[in-house]
Design a protein around this nucleic acid. Structure first.
Length: 428
RNA sequence: GCGGUAUUGGUGAAGUUUGGUUAACACACCGGAUUGUGGUUCCGGCACGCGUGGGUUCGAGUCCCACAUACCGCCCCA
């Protein structure tokens, strides 16, 4: 019986892992410019951390969460998303305290788990990069987060982006709008798709998101949430738009955009891209928004937050299909060819000496013939091939060849061991 | 959770329509072409075997069933 990795998981192998590292390092650099700092929270939390924040009836809680009882009978959940854990840490460590600069800006990257049917770019274990900023209601912070998201994609080398924004307003706005939407859709109940019929009372906003063509006809004429904004909500949203304009960031307002998680309010946004890699038309690669009230929900004070998250797997698919060039990482400075058993010891010493001088170096470990070793040096794209055999050992020298120019010299063994940089300077 | 398609070596795969006896071809890899210098060329090697387990049959990679996994669509999410 052969072992297989669990359904919906992936091995990220060398070659691929370079791409991951590149994306992560670009993200760290960008975040650092905006003064966001990394936070690392547990991969699992108490079940309630997620059920409280995502909504008890949300699908993510009722059927997509990996949850279990541990040996101490604690109800544990693998994190299905990043925000809840960060908020929990924010509260538990009292990062809302006076000694912490506001807003508190942080980012995370790591595994998330959802029990769902795997598809391309959607796995049960997947990875997200996300940011959160706590402690300011100012629209300027919403805009900083959005601007940073757009900046991030620019650094990833992705263009053809579309920024869609909307507002869910405050609680009063949502309550009023929810009722208006129900009032509008109720008369058409029988004409709605089955899924939407269920959604109508459970979460009517989600009807707006329906992919059913029939539903879309009703949605087109549905009341807009923008007409139900309270004065405060409207002012917040207007300011966000003004600031985006001021920064020259293009956007479209999509009043039908909604969120699957219950904790969002006010500004929500999605970065969308038109790429065949992720399906037809514009699809979302990054989503975020404001979540005032979430901190309080988890036992903290009334502190607001805003953030976004993006899926690594989808991002990498996108970058690969857009032909983004990843930096070549596997440079090999020197390959040391040892001829005959007599050379084994000295070959190892040379390789190790080169590494001590900060050169990357490698050698053969299969006792292969010179011919095969030279082939390997070539295939590994070594900048220099060093050769040492009985003839060299006898007079304490080593042969050094520049693989690009073909120039070669015989150098004193000690020079290579102590100052390889000086030796190669003499060749080129 | 529902529906569809697929699963052959390290890789890409032919073969499955019309079940028949040695699983094509290519790439990669390994070895060799007179002794210690590469990228070309030539020669040779490389599936106890067709996802797993059952079944039908004189005979199955080719037919049937179950399971697993991947991909696509739905739910969901983004």
């Amino acid at each position: 019986m052969r072992y297989q990795r669990p359904k919906g998981t992936a091995d990220i192998l060398p070659g691929d892992s370079q791409h991951w590292q590149y994306v992560e390092s670009v993200a760290r650099q960008v975040f650092s410019k905006y003064r966001f700092e990394e936070i690392r929270t547990p991969l699992f939390e108490n079940f309630e951390v997620f059920s409280r924040t995502s909504g008890d009836t949300s699908d993510i809680v009722t059927k997509e969460m990996y949850d279990f009882k541990d040996k101490g009978d604690r109800h544990i959940s693998l994190r299905p998303e990043g925000t809840a854990g960060v908020v929990r840490a924010f509260v538990e460590n009292k990062l809302y305290g006076p000694e912490v600069q506001k807003p508190f800006k942080t980012y995370y990257m790591g595994q998330m788990y959802r029990y769902e049917r795997p598809q391309s770019g959607r796995q049960r274990e997947f990875h997200q990069i996300g940011v959160e900023a706590f402690g300011s209601d100012e629209p300027a912070l919403d805009v900083e987060v959005i601007a940073m998201g757009m900046d991030l994609f620019k650094h990833f080398g992705i263009s053809n982006l579309r920024l869609a924004i909307n507002t869910l307003g405050d609680k009063e706005t949502r309550d009023n709008y929810r009722q208006a939407l129900i009032d509008y859709l109720e008369p058409h109940f029988d004409e709605l798709s089955k899924d939407s019929q269920v959604r109508l009372h459970k979460n009517p906003l989600r009807v707006l998101d329906s992919k059913d063509e029939e539903d879309q006809k009703f949605v087109a004429n549905a009341p807009s949430i923008l007409d139900y904004l309270t004065a405060d909500a409207k002012q917040h949203f207007e300011r966000v738009k003004q600031l985006l304009d001021a920064l020259g960031i293009d956007y479209v307002v999509d009043s039908t955009m909604v969120r699957g998680l219950d904790y969002y309010n006010h500004t929500i946004f999605e970065v969308m891209v038109n790429s065949k890699a992720l399906g037809h038309g514009y699809t979302t690669v990054c989503a975020g928004g404001r979540y005032n009230g979430l901190v309080k929900e988890l036992g903290g004070p009334e502190v607001s937050g805003v953030g976004f998250g993006l899926g690594m797997e989808r991002l990498l698919l996108l970058m690969e299909s857009e032909g983004v060039e990843f930096p070549e990482e596997h440079h090999l400075d020197a390959y040391v060819v040892g001829i005959s058993d007599a050379a084994d010891t000295v070959t190892l010493k040379v390789v190790q000496a080169l590494r001590q001088q900060d050169f990357s170096a490698d050698r053969d470990y299969l006792a292969r013939k010179p011919k095969a070793q030279f082939k390997t040096a070539d295939r590994l794209n070594a900048a220099y091939t060093l050769t040492i055999g009985e003839a060299e050992i006898a007079v304490s020298t080593i042969h050094v060849k520049n693989m690009v120019s073909g120039n070669e010299v015989s150098a004193p063994l000690n020079d290579v061991i102590n100052d390889f940089a000086g030796v190669i300077k003499g060749i080129d």
